[in-house]
């Protein structure tokens, strides 16, 4: 049996492809791109939330947020490791992120203006990420699928802590409820955009579905998210900034109005509120940490010398 036959058989049987298996160049390339973007998203995603660590309203909220941001770093690590099994180096991925040659999810180019945004991110952004990542647990590449299983386990804490922040605000003062509503108004549409362009315009979907890298289409995932999220919003007493949002008795689904794809494309192409600032902060952190890496390397060498002397 040739490597290609075995690859096709593996995909057909819903089995997992593993690092040392033969795989088509396109499959490897698509995976590197997608896993890298996913990893970069986790890492850049630390910035909008890290922005509120020092201003969290209570010590408990503060340690929770720190734990969440630490999780995002961990998720980045799992994903970079998965990408490395495909033959790409960590430094190279980092270099591609820093030079803008690889992207991360556009959602992280929006600013976190109030404490309620931290709640909205957990509830909506992580909520959307969970819907997507649950589907990706079934992806055909073993290391990616395993990373997703681990991430999904941790991500559910993220969504719940976000919702809990908003619940507290919903039971608070008039001003706190207004702050919550403002956050939902700003995060609702970008969260829906996270699922990507409509299926009809999604260029990669067909091949990715064939290879079972992607198991569920953008529109279907978006619908799952809307259906689970709208009732949760009603419980909080918030409205969604969509006059066309309506429950369809016939299908049992919540129908949304038109998404502003011009905004989506503008942010993807680099003209979001914070595209440049996010990358600049990332590069700054990398350069600022250089002495730590150098010191760790020097220390390891010294210990090694002493051991062998």
């Amino acid at each position: 049996m040739t490597g290609e036959d075995r690859f096709l058989e593996t995909i057909e049987a819903d089995d997992k492809v593993e690092p040392r298996d033969w795989m088509p160049d396109g499959y490897r390339k698509t995976l590197i791109r997608q896993i890298a973007q996913h990893a970069h998203s986790e890492v850049i995603g630390m910035q909008p939330e890290g922005n509120w660590i020092t201003r969290a309203p209570t010590l408990m909220r503060k340690i929770i947020l720190m734990a969440k941001v630490q999780d995002e770093a961990g998720h980045g690590l799992y994903l970079y490791s998965a990408a490395e099994t495909l033959g790409v180096s960590r430094d190279e991925l980092q270099h591609l992120l820093h030079t803008g040659k690889q992207k991360y999810s556009s959602i992280f180019n929006y600013p976190t203006l109030s404490w309620a945004d931290i709640g909205a991110i957990g509830w909506l952004v992580d909520g959307a990420a969970i819907v997507n990542q649950i589907a990706l647990q079934q992806t055909s590449y073993g290391p990616y699928a395993r990373a997703m299983v681990k991430i999904c386990k941790e991500e559910s804490f993220h969504a719940r802590q976000g919702y809990s922040i908003l619940l507290a605000l919903s039971r608070g003062s008039e001003a706190q409820r207004a702050m919550m509503q403002d956050a939902v108004d700003r995060w609702w549409w970008p969260s829906l955009m996270m699922f990507g362009p409509p299926d009809a315009e999604s260029t990669h979907t067909e091949q990715s579905m064939e290879w079972k890298i992607k198991r569920v289409t953008n529109d279907e995932l978006r619908q799952r998210f809307v259906d689970q999220t709208v009732p949760q919003g009603q419980h909080l007493g918030v409205t969604f900034p969509d006059p066309d949002l309506a429950y369809d008795e016939g299908t049992g689904h919540w129908m949304i109005g038109d998404i502003d794809w011009d905004e989506f494309w503008a942010v993807v192409k680099g003209d979001g509120r914070l595209n440049r600032e996010r990358i600049a902060a990332k590069v700054r952190a990398w350069e600022g940490g250089a002495w730590v890496r150098e010191a760790a390397t020097a220390y390891a060498e010294k210990v090694n010398l002493r051991r062998t002397a």
Binding site: T30, I32, D91, Y104, S106, N218
Partner: peptide, 28 residues
């Protein structure tokens, strides 16, 4: 979320494999 952000101008399209880690920390 879709982690296959649509391709846009300026994105690297050539194969990123084959480079080595510069700081040389081993993998464990």
């Amino acid at each position: 979320m879709t982690y296959e952000v649509p391709e846009i101008p300026g994105e690297q399209t050539e194969d990123p494999t084959g480079h080595h880690d510069e700081h040389g920390w081993p993998l464990w």
